[in-house]
Design a protein around this nucleic acid. Structure first.
Length: 244
DNA sequence: ACCTCCCTGGCC
DNA sequence: GGCCAGGGAGGT
């Protein structure tokens, strides 16, 4: 999981005997700030988890990175698929990291409709693809993209530049309410149980999903069958009857 | 806009 | 055994 660290030895060297001074998050990147201007970056990928346990206790399977604290606890990064990654960066590395080019956080710092309209203006790509583009808006993944589009009653294939001002406002409103609902429910634990809350509980947003993973089931809004299309190599679940 | 790759695991 | 999976980088 430290494969993106330019000098692999830097990961431990930059953390050992250093104090944690704060935490942060932008989009899907987690930040643990370390004394000496070091940023410990964590991205969970598709199957990663951050856990805390007691030193000496049995660790979960697929625990790849362990950082022992001075209070008897240890931070564990667990990731069966290892699409996640972590690194300890110096300020100049943070400045050039890909996440530093990401757009505003979709939850804490959503753009004004006019700002998003400017950036979508001439884009011909489907709006679904651009919702997943972290350089436009950071933090939305496949589930929340599909759920947001359903709430906004927008078809995922719509060319982004052709959205009207009203539709962009609807989309931003839908993103906000979808992310709020997702967080309130503790996130989305799917059947694979890959994502769990830090204390091991499941997130319950799966019970509120309108379209994601519901291929063939009736749309909760209009009853038409939900379909699954592939857009940019990712599954897209949507209702062709009430999303236009 | 497409492709491959990074990995493991569950399901059909 | 093939397909699918909450993500993203890199190449053409």
């Amino acid at each position: 999981m430290v494969r993106k660290q330019e000098q692999p030895g830097d990961f431990a060297a930059r953390l050992v005997e250093r104090r944690i001074v704060g935490t942060g998050r932008h989009g899907k990147h987690l930040f643990i700030h370390i004394v000496g201007d070091v940023t410990w970056v964590i991205h969970l990928g598709m199957s990663g988890r951050v856990g805390v346990g007691r030193v000496g206790d049995v660790r979960p399977p697929h625990t790849h990175v362990v950082v022992v604290l001075d209070d008897g606890n240890e931070i564990r990064l667990t990731d069966p698929r290892t699409f996640g990654h972590t690194e300890a960066l110096a300020p100049e590395e943070v400045a050039t990291a890909s996440f530093s080019a990401h757009g505003p956080d979709a939850y804490t710092d959503p753009p004004a409709p006019s700002a998003l309209a400017d950036r979508l203006g001439h884009r011909t790509a489907p709006i679904k693809a651009l919702l997943l583009d972290q350089t436009l808006l950071a933090g939305i993944g496949n589930i929340y993209a599909d759920e947001s589009l359903h709430r906004a009653r927008l078809a995922p294939h719509r060319p982004a530049g052709a959205l009207t001002r009203g539709e962009i406002e609807r989309l931003l409103e839908a993103v906000a309410t979808t992310l709020e609902a997702g967080l309130r429910a503790g996130g989305t634990t799917l059947a694979d149980m890959a994502y769990l809350l830090p204390d091991g509980r499941s997130g319950e947003f799966i019970t509120e999903l309108a379209v994601y993973g519901r291929d063939g089931e009736p749309c909760p809004r209009c009853g038409a069958p939900i379909r699954r299309d592939v857009i940019r190599q990712r599954s897209s679940f949507w209702c062709a009857s009430c999303q236009h």
